[in-house]
Nucleic acid binder design. Structure first.
Lengths: 175, 175, 175, 175
DNA sequence: CATGAATGAGGCTTCATTCAT
DNA sequence: CATGAATGAAGCCTCATTCAT
């Protein structure tokens, strides 16, 4: 799974399964005892990464703090994960736009992010985006997050600054 | 070119050249009298779409109006183009993240968007993002734009509402 | 025809007809108003070059001189042609081993060399190779000639020396 | 490898890899698990055949006999190999003039023939060709050898006679 | 369960040849 | 007769997947 992330980050979704197997240190044949299909592998990887990202984002969430603090915590965690796992992030970015990912996986992936969505929901409800569909707000947050992560990875020495900057921009949008 | 956009929108960047040729109503081999390579075709398509999108965005720009009005005009035009050319938009979105696009094409593409960047620059300089790198601001705008366009296409009856909503969100970020 | 020789010398028999046309300064389509087929072009080129080579070899043959002198004249002329027309020679070498050349062409080509063969015949008849088939003697001469020409072209400053050396070797074989 | 020799002998270097695979009794794709490239296959075949030919030529060389006897042994062995492996010989002949064969392969191939060259060297040094470059002498021997082999294969009933005849001719050239 | 050779469908690209202008 | 765009068959090569060991 980790090998797959690395290989996909480096070679894109078209990466040969043989390469993934090699990176994982198993034979190409063995790959298919774990995954029926390349698409299957991709879907599982998608779910894994989505879950890992979501889990990290929520770790240590200060449930009693105000919304801004909670959101900032979530945002920082998320950006931190992305910055420290550039390959996983890159792989996830590719998977997000792939049409190999089934609607089912997509749905499960979204479910994983439920807590984040709930947090966002409470913010949206009383802010200027109260009339926007929830999906839109989530999508915007993801888009801004992706962009921010890109810049953090690209310019690691200013990672923290970028992280803060991204959050402030997001917050201005939301409240 | 238009056929390529349609096919890529429907089948992704991995679409067989044969399919593109068929959609264009020419033979498989003929494609390669126009483009040396599939990558070449992709690069030209990228530049074409980028140019068309940028051109449309700037058409009729009210140069004397205030920044907000100019930006809104640009935004509406851009969203309108996306909404009315969903296939081109989808194709361009795929090309934007493809690694078949050469750095040269990428650079040319960015040059095409110079006027838009300039407009944004004047806004950024005196707003809360004055310390953010210009590239970041542009990237954010694109990200929010892409997301908004997705929703407009997905829910055409509320396209205008989405368009306005996206702009307002963007504007809150910028000023 | 000359263009074909140049292109084939440079790119081998697999050279695209389009390249030959371009080198000849005509359109690719025009080529096929002169030659029905690529194979046809190749056959005509083969005959042309064979004829030119044979003609040059025999030009100014001192019919009254002794056999050695006549043979040396022929040999020098032949080597001189090869050395001064390396592209034609190279093209002819390729054509000689091509299976695009029809038996008919092959036969005609041999006929062109009849006078040379006759000369050789008179030498063979009374020398140590009197029991060898004529075709063998001709083939040997061609083989030695090709090898010699290669060295002359490869090392032009010693062309004359090579020419003489080759002839002497041939002569030792024949008499 | 043997299949490749057969197919190339019959169809030339342009033979489809599919044909070679079929002749070898494996699938089209399997060929490329053994050879990265058609050119790679060709180079390996060249080296194989060159080595086999050289090895056969030197097998049982009577090191204590005089030079003439040694050379005749080598010559007979070589001609025998050619006569008994007409397909391999034909394939090797094609490969010898192909530009798919890399300089590296070419060099390795020549190294294989070193012992033969040494033998020839000792003969050349004191004969009439003492001033000729060694490469030229080797090339001549190959040329005469090829021609002789052709006749042996073409007229098998007189193979031995041709073999002897060719050697005598060669020997007259050398001493 | 692991292996890795074998498979063959399918993709990109080339090129001799045709034909409307 | 010249042109050059169009054609499509054919070639090389890749790769997801299978299966005997």
């Amino acid at each position: 799974m980790a090998a797959a992330a690395r290989v996909i980050a480096a070679h894109g979704l078209g990466a040969p399964t043989a390469l993934i197997a090699e990176e994982a240190g198993v034979s190409n044949g063995s790959l298919f005892t774990y995954f029926d299909t390349k698409a299957d592998l991709l879907n599982q990887l998608y779910l894994d990464l989505k879950a890992e990202s979501a889990f990290t984002s929520l770790k240590g969430l200060p449930l009693r703090a105000d919304l801004r603090k909670q959101t900032f915590h979530m945002w920082s965690q998320s950006m931190g994960w992305a910055a420290q796992n550039p390959e996983k992030r890159r792989a996830l970015a590719q998977l997000n736009v792939s049409d190999e990912i089934t609607p089912t996986s997509r749905a499960t992936g979204h479910k994983t992010m439920k807590p984040i969505a709930s947090l966002l929901e409470r913010i949206r409800a009383k802010g200027p985006m109260r009339d926007a569909p929830m999906g839109y707000v989530v999508a915007i947050m993801n888009a801004v997050g992706d962009t921010t992560a890109d810049f953090m990875i690209h310019d690691p020495s200013n990672a923290n600054k970028h992280c803060k900057m991204g959050f402030d921009a997001l917050w201005r949008m939301l409240v």
